[in-house]
Design a protein around this nucleic acid. Structure first.
Length: 265
DNA sequence: GCTTTAGTACCAGTTACTTCA
DNA sequence: CTTGAAGTAACTGGTACTAAA
């Protein structure tokens, strides 16, 4: 699958590293590379079977239908190009043809018949579903796929392109939220652990001052952590005395060199 | 082999519009 | 009916990459 599947791969790596995305197969640069290989996704197009909404039973059965559709597509391509202040030319690679379109700023050209700029259309459920399916296949489109999808849904290629951009942004946002939650939980766990260890250290220090009985143990069984001065034994044994017991617990908690080197204690 | 330039795709951030509680 | 929040289509400006000159 595309972005979402590999996105979860990235999470598993989480590594709690903020830069983890760099290693993600779907990070920007890899996506750029993927783009170049995008022709391999051409198989998708025949699999799109849902008819465009509203124009509910729309099916370009006749040549005229197809021509009209193409025409509409070209016209809308003109009206949908983003507003760079300059007029641009873009070659839309059609299915088996190249259409050269004069581009003009959209603030001007996006006006509909009534002259109101940027009238926002709401995609129908069916359109959204087809786009969603397509996105699941792959999160980026090559020009052919874009054109074909646009024709299939009776949308402008620019609209398809924008939808994919926004969809990628939403995916990334969700992914970021998930990572944030994980990091937050991790932080809370570590804070708790830190609290516990400090408490334990305090207990040990007071024990040491009161009755350093562990000194009487065979030296070989005791080790001292150089960084936190915690005492352990080769088997993390419990040492008890008349004054009470203290335990050097094994570490059930997960530790991570990312958080603290001395966490290995 | 270089630099420059134009074209293209993508992204982050933003705006504008719609929908719904 | 009005309003604010949330969702999202569309836009903007910037960056990276590629191919041609």
């Amino acid at each position: 699958m595309g972005f979402e599947a590999s996105g979860s791969d990235c999470h598993t790596g989480l590594g709690l590293g903020l830069g983890s995305n760099e290693n993600c197969p779907d990070s920007n640069h890899l996506q750029e590379k993927k783009k170049k290989l995008s022709l391999k996704y051409d198989h998708l197009l025949p699999s799109l079977t849902l008819g465009p909404p509203e124009k509910a039973n729309y099916q370009p059965e006749t040549k005229m239908d197809v021509d009209l559709q193409r025409q509409a597509s070209s016209v809308s391509a003109v009206s949908s190009f983003s507003n760079n202040s300059n007029v641009k030319k873009e070659k839309e690679v059609g299915v088996g043809e190249e259409v050269e379109v004069e581009r003009t700023p959209s603030r001007v050209t996006d006006e509909d018949e009534e002259g109101s700029p940027r009238k926002k259309l709401r995609l129908t459920k069916e359109q959204a579903a087809v786009l969603e399916d397509s996105f699941k296949e792959h999160s980026t489109l090559n020009p052919k796929q874009k054109q074909a999808l646009a024709e299939h849904l009776n949308l402008r290629p620019r609209q398809v392109e924008v939808w994919f951009q926004n969809r990628r942004a939403r995916t990334k946002l969700k992914q970021t939220e998930v990572e944030y939650d994980l990091l937050k939980k991790c932080c809370e766990t570590l804070t708790e652990e830190n609290k516990r260890l400090r408490k334990e250290l305090q207990e040990l220090k007071s024990l040491k001052l009161a009755a350093p009985l562990y000194m009487q143990l065979p030296a070989a069984t005791l080790t001292m952590c150089p960084s936190c001065e915690r005492i352990g034994s080769s088997s993390d044994i419990v040492s008890s005395s008349a004054g009470g017991t203290f335990t050097v617990r094994p570490k059930p908690y997960f530790l991570n060199s990312f958080t603290h080197p001395s966490a290995a204690c």
